[in-house]
């Protein structure tokens, strides 16, 4: 992937999309081959260096993996744990730190009034937006997102992909996003990669593809 590139990964459930993301963010060690992320191989790194690479990688997980028992502000601040000291992180649980940034991030996803709500009291769509806000305060270079818009209405889905693509567009970062919705992929990405049983079955610039092409790809898969 080149700097500034936004790549959509499409494919049926079980095709290997989530695994790909987990390999890239270094939580899963590949069984074969090597991975290079931000110029380093995460599986070869340890300790501080690994944390630095990880802090520059922002992930929106398919199941979000928010901590339901925490208030929204802490879940958003969790995006900054890579750069905070342990003491500051602990203190923030008592006296939330950096509330203005958190509020600004939540404002961009339309949740500014829920800063101090318990996260498990939010709806699925609202939680997805909290995960986006977490990413906004983390300010990563590489964004990995797994179905980040599955519970959002069309307008919010567009907004979400807009925000995810921002580091790629403005800072020379990159976006790798798994999507089920072909239209979204074409609207927000430069390149589309189709996975079939763990192998790359399609790799083309978004401009060269039509909605019909992608739907046909899904048809093959089904």
């Amino acid at each position: 992937m080149a700097a500034g590139e936004r790549v959509a990964v499409v494919g049926a459930s079980g095709a290997g999309k989530s695994t790909l993301l987990n390999v890239l963010n270094g939580t899963v060690v590949p069984t074969a081959g090597t991975v290079e992320v931000l110029g380093r191989d995460p599986s070869a790194l340890r300790g501080r260096e690994l944390r630095q690479v990880r802090a520059r990688t922002g992930t929106v997980h398919q199941h979000l993996e928010l901590t339901g028992a925490l208030r929204v502000v802490h879940n958003v601040n969790a995006g900054r744990l890579g750069s905070w000291s342990a003491a500051r992180a602990a203190w923030s649980l008592l006296r939330p730190q950096g509330v203005p940034e958190v509020r600004a991030a939540l404002d961009r996803v339309g949740l500014a009034d829920r800063v101090f709500e318990r996260t498990d009291r939010l709806s699925g769509g609202q939680r997805q937006r909290v995960a986006l806000a977490r990413l906004l305060v983390q300010r990563p270079d590489l964004v990995l997102a797994d179905e980040p818009a599955s519970a959002l209405d069309p307008a919010l889905a567009d907004l979400a992909l807009e925000l995810l693509g921002e580091p790629a567009r403005s800072r020379g970062g990159a976006l790798l996003v798994c999507l089920h919705d072909p239209a979204l992929a074409l609207r927000h990405c430069d390149r589309v990669v189709g996975l079939l049983d763990g192998r790359v079955a399609l790799d083309a610039p978004a401009t060269s593809l039509t909605l019909a092409d992608l739907e046909r790809f899904y048809g093959v898969v089904r």
């Binding site: 990880r54 990688t57 993996e65 901590t67 339901g68 969790a78 744990l81 890579g82 342990a86 649980l93």
Partner: peptide, 28 residues
């Protein structure tokens, strides 16, 4: 484990990740 792993993946240390990802659900 999900939340804890996600925090590790975002660069948090183990202690911090436990603080944000493991302790709150177990607090009760």
């Amino acid at each position: 484990r999900g939340s804890y792993e996600a925090l590790l993946a975002a660069g948090a240390g183990r202690a911090t990740a436990s603080l944000y990802g493991l302790l709150p659900p177990a607090a009760g």
